[in-house]
Design a protein around this nucleic acid. Structure first.
Length: 837
RNA sequence: GCGGAAGUGGCGGAAUUGGCAGACGCGCCAGCCUUAGGAGCUGGUGGCCGAAAGGCCGUAGGGGUUCGAGUCCCUUCUUCCGCACCA
């Protein structure tokens, strides 16, 4: 009997799949397509179990869908631009391209080693000109439409990365790659993509994803976009020494509380602050204190807990509703980046204003009263009342409910010209310039005469030149390559300089899965007709880390592509699955923490099927998974057991024609056959359900283990099991194993004499209810809801009959001892509850 | 602080709609086989009481709805995640 030799089996079947081109699929309108996608990896160092888990989940789904007859596209590629490659170059003197390609080779080798069913013809690598030229093409289209634009602004600078970060790439005030490195503020001129133009739609179409995306991710995106409906109100600055026409615009969602405003507060870096101090000649007086307010900590935890601080500027603003003069302050809690950089301070109805007013002794007029509770009084007010209620002390608006007051006051204020209803978003435009080398060159030139000039399409790609010196000084490395920088202006022929910043690598990953559909197109990013067949993605699988970053950007790109007429859907991904992390010692595997288990080492030790099975069995896929050497041994044992089991019965199985089991009638079946067929079909029903709706591969695996256990308890099969029945059972087992442990399944299939076709395209078996049905069931007998006895009865008894049978059972009669029965609850085939009371 | 998810044996985790809690695996215990076992096989394994039959307790704590609750409701606690002066 041949031992289970995973290495040999795995090589053998991988070669066979390659020869069969088993996983290649091209558009075929007669077939239902299914797009399975795993987030493309950044190939750094070696592939670890975290990656491997991601791809295993995707592969099981791809293989299962294929067995269901779907036309499956399942591609893989490489997120190949990015900082680690450049840092490796600086530290070790290896060119980023070389470092990256070595890693890609290694990742690809491991992917093949695990038998992931990718269509490798579609492989892309984002650092190749054939790919990034389309990044440039998209950028130019956005430039034409005003979606890409250039501006000078305060940006997030990571001193470790030596480059700018987008807002989404700042986590807790620190760089998303360097969680202990606070970002610094820097004024830089850079390129932005006007994602805010789509803010409303990015929010609206999240509703379409309700059924397919985790609620968590949807919530995070909604919060990030941060839509807020309110009013922009203009307060005139009271100017006793002449009218300079200064005014302050505040944004508020609660215009109804304006009669309760006791100050206007400006952000410390609001331009008007210095102006007003200048007018009054009081700059020197306030300057030190003002600087202190401006030096807010960047750590967000600190910000939230920081004490409110302010400075009374000595100026007043006029409340446009009642003409009242209220002081103008500067406050450290007012953000220049949000709204108008100025707020009206309504202490009685805003928590922050309450705190501020308490500290500085500002008045707290009450202008909203709660609906039910007893009315607020200045004496009883110990916290801000921020809910809606009824307006009071608000001139003509007194008595209105808050909602009405907001509407009416906004309308009136608009009519009188000092306010405007407005919707603002927390979302900011996406800053995409990076002062680094290893990325897509931004295809524009700066001409002395013509200004900013787009590189003409025909000159794409703007190829990233090969450079050899990497300093990491924060200067764009491309600036030091004269042959790259100095060009002729395509418009006027005069001298021009190329843009030397490169694009954020999140551009690369925003549309890569469209490129997979038509990976070698050299006329366009892709052929819209092909994309119409394959896209949108039916199932995307990846980590929760990308809940905002990548998934927001890619949704934005989809909408831009739609507006360019390239695609006809609004959302790129129908269903999203966020898998859990692979932990070791309680933390996520990562190179920096030194706790990685290499996928290749693992495959070498146990075989990849064992590795696949372990990651599927150890936890449901959405949960984190703690790596355990002991538990993986259990999976290895199980596969060995299955292999031995089939080996042992090869003779018996060879006596039956293939696929003959279905005709077996239960009437003529032996008890052993009945037991086996029942178990097999019960397992099939539940495994199919786990695959279909929940992807609980852990319980599916447990069920298959149960089936194997059952087969073993029915041994020897030669006695009492006909070959065709044995065959049916073993084929069911093998087909169900196929998506999870495909190599072993193929081998078993062959051992059973099936040689014509691989399992890759075999059909998923059909559940037969009659075969799963039990003819004896165990019924639980409860007294007053507590389980007392269990009895065997034939299945399918009616309620009355079942009660009759239960009550006539001697051991039940003894239990009840003639007591009066108050009530009976009957669940056929399951339970009888006798209520005595 | 706000929002969300979760809490089940020694461990990972099952339990589809309110109907047998702990499937399956790991670990552990006992036995078989073996020159040997870090291999294989058999059996046991939530806690307490009991020789056994059986009984009692048990899904973070408390309360409730129900004939019946891991599952539904209220409440407290804990953990994890997200947001964090967003006006």
């Amino acid at each position: 009997m041949a031992e289970y030799d995973p290495q040999a089996i795995e090589r053998k079947w991988q070669a066979r799949w390659d020869a069969d081109r088993a996983f290649e699929a091209d558009p075929d309108p007669s077939k239902l397509k299914y797009y399975v996608l795993e987030m493309l990896p950044y190939p750094s160092g070696t592939m670890h179990m975290g990656h491997m888990r991601n791809y295993t989940i995707g592969d099981v789904i791809a293989r299962y869908r294929r067995m269901q007859g779907f036309h499956v596209i399942h591609p893989m590629g490489w997120d190949a631009f990015g900082l680690p490659a450049e840092n490796a170059a600086i530290q070790r003197g290896i060119h980023p391209r070389e470092w990256t390609n070595t890693n890609i080779e290694s990742f690809k080798r491991v992917c093949r080693r695990f038998g992931f069913s990718y269509d490798w013809r579609r492989e892309i690598s984002t650092c190749e000109p054939e790919y990034y030229r389309w990044n440039q093409w998209f950028f130019l289209r956005m430039l034409e439409r005003g979606i890409a634009y250039r501006k000078r602004s305060r940006v997030n600078w990571c001193p470790k990365c030596q480059t700018v970060l987008a807002n989404e790439q700042v986590v807790n005030g620190c760089c998303w790659r360097h969680e202990d490195t606070p970002v610094e503020a820097k004024e830089i001129e850079q390129w932005f993509l006007r994602i805010t133009q789509y803010a409303d739609e990015l929010l609206e179409t999240l509703d379409q994803l309700e059924d397919g995306w985790p609620e968590r991710v949807l919530t995070m995106q909604r919060n990030w976009i941060g839509k807020s409906r309110g009013t922009r109100i203009r307060f005139t600055v009271d100017d006793p020494r002449g009218n300079r026409g200064e005014f302050i615009e505040v944004f508020t969602t609660r215009i109804d509380t304006i009669y309760g405003a006791s100050a206007v507060i400006l952000a410390p870096n609001h331009p008007l602050v210095e102006k007003l101090l200048g007018y009054a000649g009081t700059k020197s007086l306030y300057w030190t204190r003002l600087l202190r307010l401006r030096q807010a900590s960047v750590k967000t935890e600190d910000i939230a807990t920081a004490e409110k601080e302010g400075i009374d500027l000595g100026w007043h603003a006029i409340n446009p509703f009642n003409g009242e003069k209220i002081p103008i302050w500067v406050g450290n809690f007012v953000l220049m980046e949000y709204g108008t950089g100025a707020v009206m301070c309504v202490p009685a109805h805003d928590e922050r204003d309450f705190e501020f007013a308490t500290k500085y002794g500002l008045a707290k007029p009450i202008v909203v009263q709660p609906d039910e509770d007893k009315p607020l009084t200045p004496e009883s007010l110990d916290a801000a009342f921020t809910e809606y209620g009824k307006s009071v002390n608000s001139g003509p608006y007194s008595g209105l409910p808050s909602e009405r007051a907001i509407e009416k006051m906004t309308a009136d204020a608009e009519a009188r010209g000092f306010a405007k209803g407005e919707i603002i978003f927390r979302l900011k435009d996406w800053g995409i310039s990076r002062q680094r080398y290893w990325g897509t060159p931004i295809p524009v030139l700066f001409c002395e005469k013509c200004g900013v000039v787009a590189v003409p399409d025909k000159d794409l790609p703007v190829v990233l030149p090969t450079i050899t010196k990497f300093s990491g000084t924060g200067q764009s490395p491309l600036a030091s390559v004269p042959e790259f920088v100095n060009v002729k202006c395509p418009k006027c022929g005069g001298a021009a300089r190329r843009e030397t910043d490169t694009m954020d690598t999140f551009i690369d990953s925003s549309w890569y899965f469209y490129r997979y559909a038509d990976a070698h197109n050299d006329k366009a990013p892709f052929d819209p007709a092909i994309v119409r067949y394959w896209l949108p993605v039916d199932q995307y699988i990846g980590g929760i880390v990308h809940a905002i970053l990548h998934l927001l950007y890619t949704r934005f790109f989809c909408k831009v592509m739609r507006d360019l007429g390239l695609v006809n859907h609004d959302e790129p991904v129908k269903r999203l699955f966020t898998q859990g992390l692979v932990l070791k010692g309680g933390t996520a595997m990562s190179k920096s923490k030194g706790n990685v288990v290499g996928a290749e080492d693992m495959a070498q030790k146990y075989g990849c099927d064992t590795g696949r099975l372990y990651t599927l069995f150890a936890a449901p896929p959405e949960k984190d998974l703690e790596w355990s050497e002991q538990a993986i041994e259990g999976c290895a044992r199980f596969l060995q057991r299955v292999h031995r089991l089939v080996s042992r019965h090869a003779d018996l199985l060879s006596k039956a024609p293939a696929g003959s089991g279905l005709g077996v009638s239960l009437d003529s079946a032996t008890p052993k056959e009945k037991a086996l067929l029942r178990k097999a079909h019960q397992v099939l029903r539940r495994v199919t359900n786990d695959f279909e709706s929940r992807w609980h591969f852990n319980s599916a695996t447990a069920l298959l283990m149960e089936l194997v256990n059952e087969i073993q308890t029915q041994e020897p099969l030669e006695e009492g099991v006909r070959p065709e029945v044995a065959r049916e059972i073993f084929e069911l087992l093998t087909l169900m194993l196929a998506p999870m442990v495909p190599h072993l399944a193929e081998e078993l299939w062959e051992m059973m004499g099936r040689t014509q076709q691989t399992l890759a395209h075999s059909r998923w078996p059909q559940f037969v209810p009659q075969l799963a049905a039990e003819d004896q069931v165990e019924v639980v007998v409860q007294v007053n809801g507590r389980v007392k006895r269990r009895i065997q009865v034939e299945a399918g008894l009616g309620e009355a009959e079942l009660v009759e049978r239960v009550l006539s059972e001697p051991k039940i009669m003894k239990l009840l001892d003639g007591q009066r029965i108050f009530k009976r609850i009957v669940v056929p085939d399951k339970l009888v509850n006798v209520v005595l009371r």
